[in-house]
Simulated scan of single mutants.
Amino acid sequence: MADNFGGAGFQTANYTITGSTNSYDVEQALVYVVELDRRIAEETGLDMVSLASAGVDAYGVAQVKNSLGLSGRAYVKTHAGKQYLILKGNPRQRPVLRGTRYLASNPQVAHITVGARSIARAAGRVTGIVFVAYTALNVVEHLMTSDDPRLSSLLGNIAADMIKFFVAAGAGVLAGILVGTLTTVVAGPLVAAIFVGVASGILLDRLDRQYGLTEKLILAIEAVQVQAERPFARLAREIAAWERWFIDKAVRQSIRFR
């Protein structure tokens, strides 16, 4: 049964699982999430997964700000085979980290991202989560709201979302690394990575919608599937031809000996 969810104009389905004490409209909630994600993407150019990823990065900036302040400066130095985080500036502006040198493995400074390797590692940590989130969201959308039965449609949407995420995330990482080479302000590379990543995601979404890139990717996947199926189809045709030849030969032999 379809209805409007909360007066927001979303078309939702109704499927209730009844337990011993409670009832859950599971399908209604899932369809609402999918349609909300679609609406957000249409309005902002970013879906919920991208926004969540940006939120995680923003939380990292907030942690750095609370520890060092937005102007906090730091760099990594290796001494006697150990890596140290060296903090610069007035320690009174650092509400938490009052010292000037910490081991890089110290839990107090583990959240502070300094250097190209650290920025790339921080971006890589969310990649697996993002892949699972995009896959799950696309599967739910395909099963509950899509009228397109093609498996290539599902694979194309997942691939397109992941490609856009990787390109946007890569652009953000490169921007963060570039800014990191120009300044020792810890928050600078993180802010640059977030800003460029979000802007790249919005641009890629707009290009996708304008030029139909996802649909072209789906058609390409279908073409590959057709080419992969052709050898089996040819084999089936050959087998059928051999069957007809043997049947015809048997019929001719039977006629001859009558």
Results as ranks from 00 to 15, higher is better:
Ala223Asn: 13
Glu215Ser: 12
Gln63Leu: 14
Gly172His: 08
Tyr211Met: 06
Arg94His: 14
Val126Leu: 11
Arg230Asn: 06
Ile86Leu: 08
Arg38Met: 04
Val226Asp: 15
Ala58Asp: 01
Arg256Val: 11
His142Leu: 03
Arg237Asp: 11
Gly170Leu: 01
Gly212Pro: 09
Tyr134Gly: 04
Thr100His: 12
Gly9Trp: 01
Met48Cys: 09
Gly188Ile: 00
Ile255His: 10
Asn14Asp: 13
Gly60Lys: 02
Gly124Leu: 09
Val186Trp: 05
Pro189Ser: 01
Gly115Cys: 05
Ser20Phe: 07
Ala193Lys: 04
Ser200Trp: 12
Leu151Glu: 01
Phe195Tyr: 05
Val132Lys: 04
Ala192His: 01
Arg206Leu: 13
Ser50Trp: 12
Ala120Met: 10
Asn106His: 10
Met48Leu: 15
Met48Ala: 11
Thr21Leu: 05
Arg258Asp: 02
Thr214Ile: 09
Val109Lys: 02
Ile247Pro: 00
Ala123Tyr: 12
Arg237Trp: 09
Ala74Glu: 08
Pro189His: 05
Met1Gly: 04
Pro149Gly: 02
Gly45Phe: 14
Leu137Phe: 10
Phe131Arg: 01
Ala41Asp: 15
Leu178Glu: 00
Gly180Ile: 03
Leu190Lys: 07
Val56Cys: 03
Gln253Glu: 11
Val26Arg: 14
Lys164His: 01
Ile202Thr: 10
Lys249Ala: 02
Val224Tyr: 12
Asp57Cys: 05
Val140Asp: 05
Pro189Glu: 03
Ser50Asp: 05
